[in-house]
Design a protein around this nucleic acid. Structure first.
Lengths: 146, 146
DNA sequence: TCTTGATGGTTACAAATGCAACTTTTAACA
DNA sequence: TGTTAAAAGTTGCATTTGTAACCATCAAGA
């Protein structure tokens, strides 16, 4: 006996819930890599990725691209700096901000992590047909864009 | 110019990232409802849901069903009790645990929230065709099951 | 030049979470 | 019966994160 007026509804079918479960499960495997192998947090890996992929930029520019909040960026940049994955180069023109660029170690980490991410992505996607993958990614993108 | 050995790879295509973005966006709309209207956190709403849907049970039983960690359950139950949404009934047979049951206010909140969840789910799903929805849910379930 | 307002980034504080340690009670069994 | 181990919850601590307030610098105009 159910206690609901809407007996067909179940959390397991609720899209936000289902998305969360899937996202958490999918994150886990890769999280282990950047956490255990590089001692990074998620935000740090994301920032490393942005710098590696798009080149040097300021914290604000990372924020515009990634939609990560500036306090998270500030802390992650400090952490990456302490780990010697990136360096700040002050501008003469504007001493409020600095150009962030990866060190050699940072670029190496970027290269390896990107490769592992691509591998991991393939291992996840392997469970689905090409059509399913296309639908899945399209739906996710659409949901994310709200 | 890209700085990668794998120039086709982008975070925006990375499934864990995409899933996270979609999950976060999808959560937001409903989060506003249980937060603003009922002052609940996500775990509290989930526990309210389990009790409303499946009837009275102990904290451990909720944990088995929902896979929520017992410390989160303990804190959420206390919070729901303070908000007068649930009550503990001690067992005579085993004084370590208690049966948790919703109050009248809790049942009302459950009914309304469940209805709003169902509506919200439909509003999300409306963006997709029936086939897309089926593929999406199937893929998410499969990912979550890993 | 001086003031006012915006911008880039950091820090303080509070809430949320995970992990481990702990308390109480029960069960097992020598 | 008395000791030990397990189970049900709770609490403490350390980490992470969001919000708001904050400092320093720069731009624009009076």
């Amino acid at each position: 006996m159910t206690h609901s007026d809407d007996p067909d509804f179940d959390l397991a079918d609720f899209l936000p819930y289902l998305l969360n479960q899937a996202a958490e499960a999918a994150s886990l495997g890769f999280q282990n890599i950047y956490r255990n192998d590089y001692g990074m947090l998620r935000t740090e890996w994301r920032i490393l990725f942005h710098l590696g992929r798009y080149g040097d930029m300021t914290a604000t520019e990372i924020g515009k691209r990634s939609l990560i909040h500036k306090t998270k960026i500030s802390r992650a940049v400090t952490a990456l700096e302490e780990k010697r994955f990136l360096m700040r180069k002050d501008f003469d023109s504007d001493r409020r901000s600095a150009s962030l660029s990866l060190t050699a170690a940072g670029r190496t980490a970027y290269r390896k992590l990107t490769k592992q991410a691509a591998d991991y992505d393939r291992s996840l996607a392997r469970a689905f047909s090409a059509e399913e993958q296309a639908v899945l990614r399209k739906c996710l993108r659409q949901l994310a864009a709200r």
